[in-house]
């Protein structure tokens, strides 16, 4: 059953005219990650590659194509985690870079820290030679249109909320049995400046452990954090539940306890996988 990679391009109400492009984007990303795995690459390399492909694809809410905050700027969050060592790297509220997931991996590989935020993350990016890109290059016409629409006095925040969940992520198991996860997002439409969601928070946006499996989450960030969704699903797997049952139980609990919707991709060490959502 190994290797395996599962990717998601966000849960939520995906408008019909965009759903086709989302589908081809996740397929492309899964193929990119899978061909690395087939060539013997690590699960970490594969999830990062898959997420980079989706960050570069303007149809997802990550990297180019990210939603805009209340001031009209792009601020992004990303997380990677290595199931062998439990090492993780994250960046939050980072600006002016094309691939936050790559920077998150560098935080893991090149620093003694697990998370760098805001200006500190940008400073680190410069120090390790990541090229700075303009805000404009990350902003799509579609993102700006939705931002403007939501600034209008008669905007319906609930409806705009529903379209926002385009966080991307991937989980993989490689031939050696090592497991990894990666998640990346532009966050929530018209969020406050400096808002950090679930994505860069270990245990919420993702978690990976060679002994249990890996999860990458998407959906209503504040709800995901309240139940630490990724860790919750893995606790259920530790208790003997299957990938699908654990994912469904975790999502159902989030809905009943805090009224939040979302989706997850999950793998176990044997290569069993699931892609579940209740949005």
């Amino acid at each position: 059953m190994l290797p395996v990679i599962v990717v998601h391009g966000g849960a939520g109400h995906i408008p019909r005219e965009r759903s086709e492009k989302s589908m081809s984007g996740v397929c492309y990303a899964a193929r990119a990650g899978y061909s690395l795995l087939q060539g013997g690459a690590s699960s970490m390399d594969a999830v990062v590659e898959a997420v980079i492909q989706m960050e570069n694809d303007p149809h997802f809410n990550a990297g180019r194509g990210s939603v805009l905050n209340v001031k009209g700027d792009v601020e992004m969050d990303a997380l990677v985690m290595d199931g062998k060592t439990l090492a993780s790297g994250a960046v939050s509220a980072v600006r002016n870079i094309a691939n936050p997931v790559q920077l998150a991996r560098l935080v893991m590989d090149k620093t003694s820290h697990a998370c760098l935020t805001a200006e500190g993350a940008s400073k680190f990016a410069r120090a390790v030679g990541i090229p700075e890109v303009s805000q404009e290059s990350l902003i799509t016409e579609y993102a700006r249109m939705r931002w403007t629409k939501n600034l209008a006095p008669d905007a319906n925040p609930v409806e705009s909320q529903m379209g926002k969940m385009g966080t991307v992520g991937a989980v993989a198991v490689d031939r050696e049995g090592n497991i990894a996860c990666a998640t990346s997002t532009g966050g929530m439409l018209n969020k406050m400046e400096g808002r950090v969601g679930d994505t860069p928070c270990i245990g919420s946006g993702g978690y990976a452990d060679n002994q249990t499996g890996a999860v990458s989450t998407t959906g209503h960030g504040e709800a995901i954090m309240k139940v630490t969704l990724a860790r919750l699903i893995l606790f259920h797997m530790e208790q003997g539940q299957t990938v699908e049952a654990a994912s469904d139980v975790g999502l159902a609990y989030m809905k009943s306890r805090v009224g939040g919707l979302g989706g997850v991709v999950t793998v176990d060490p044997q290569g069993g996988w699931g892609a579940r959502f209740n949005s």
Partner: peptide
Amino acid sequence: TSHVMLTGSG
């Protein structure tokens, strides 16, 4: 706020 976490200058 409707958020859980705020960071840096925000």
